[in-house]
Design a binder for these strands. Structure first.
Lengths: 198, 198
DNA sequence: GACTATACCAAGCAAGCGCTTGGTTTTGAA
DNA sequence: TTCAAAACCAAGCGCTTGCTTGGTATAGTC
């Protein structure tokens, strides 16, 4: 199903390229792509800005790479989380949790960058990521279809999904995993949006 | 209650300043603040870029003005929509609808700019808008408190509100009012997120 | 018509950006 | 040790941007 995305080898996070991507992802996430300069990224990693272009063709290429890896990681993580889960409810719960985890961004994850900086990516960059995004879309579509009548009634599934994603994405603006409210609790509170009887 | 925000006189949309604000809002909404140049804004309105600075001190000042007016308009619109409505359910429904309407942006509304470009605004600009934002926050808080046990159970109201707002904000990325799905329908589909029994 | 205020034009400045270029240093393999 | 590849440095280029400056044009008032 999602073979194409899995084919991509994850970048070693401790390689020069990997460190750049991690640093860039963090800056893109907090400052936005346009307000992050190549000098910022270089300083974050402890090199001079000209050196970046030894590893990446352009600033846009960094963004593309960060986004690409973000999709692949998320797909991989979702697939692992789904292993052994049977019920549609459990499976969708796991997916919500994975998404919240990826949105947190504290482990180098850059889903927030993918979501909120999509329009900063060049057209050719967007094109190159469509396959991965489609694979991710398909994961959700498949699970939503499988949940059928368990889903909230009276709301078109297309719209329901977009409401839920919107709600989850917005957690990047307010959620702090400070021990008071863990990911599992947050996930459980998100469930009623999706399910008629959570 | 929201007297401070109402004290601000709306800019005449057809005045030179008003036309600039409308044009800027549209561009900020579609391209983002950083990728919108003052030359873009000037071209949108049909003037030369230097002329903008006769009306606004800086590019940041345009953004602040656009956001300020957006908050004021929204508050005003919500207050009007609430007139004569008694039930907590009807009142919150009206607020959701107002928010969706403002997010659409096709009537010069710039709520999407306020929401998604907040971090592009300078610190002093953000400070100057806090009063308006607080007034808006208060509207929601008051109505949420009034709805009490009608709200979805098992979800902290603080979190519930943020989920709902996130879902509504994200409509800017997918919702097209193309006649198939009107604002009222969309509003009705959003209600179950907030209410236990919509 | 004279005068003032408002709106706008045109040219260009200073700062900062992504990126190139010509190098030096470090790393790893033989 | 030698050599080549990888990583990085330093300087600066060409371009873009927000904004300034010195004006002209238009609108409104008396």
């Amino acid at each position: 199903m999602a073979e194409p995305a899995l084919a991509l080898q994850p970048t070693d996070p401790d390689s020069p390229r990997g460190r750049l991507m991690r640093g860039a992802a963090q800056l893109f996430r907090t400052k936005g792509f346009d307000r992050t300069t190549v000098r910022d990224i270089a300083a974050e990693v402890g090199i001079q800005s000209g050196s970046i272009f030894h590893h990446f063709r352009s600033k846009d290429d960094i963004l593309r790479a960060v986004m690409e890896e973000s999709v692949c990681n998320l797909i991989r993580r979702i697939q692992q989380a789904l292993e052994g889960l049977e019920s549609p409810r459990d499976r969708l719960r796991a997916m919500i949790r994975c998404e919240l985890e990826a949105l947190r961004g504290d482990q180098g994850d850059a889903l927030a960058v993918l979501v909120y900086e999509w329009r900063s990516l060049s057209e050719s960059g967007q094109k190159s990521l469509l396959e991965g995004r489609d694979a991710y879309e398909k994961l959700w579509q498949t699970e939503m279809n499988g949940a059928g009548s368990l889903l909230r009634q009276g709301v078109d599934p297309f719209i329901l999904r977009r409401f839920v994603h919107g709600a989850l994405y917005w957690t990047t603006h307010w959620y702090q995993d400070d021990g008071q409210l863990g990911l599992d609790q947050l996930t459980d509170m998100a469930m009623p949006m999706l399910f008629q009887d959570p």
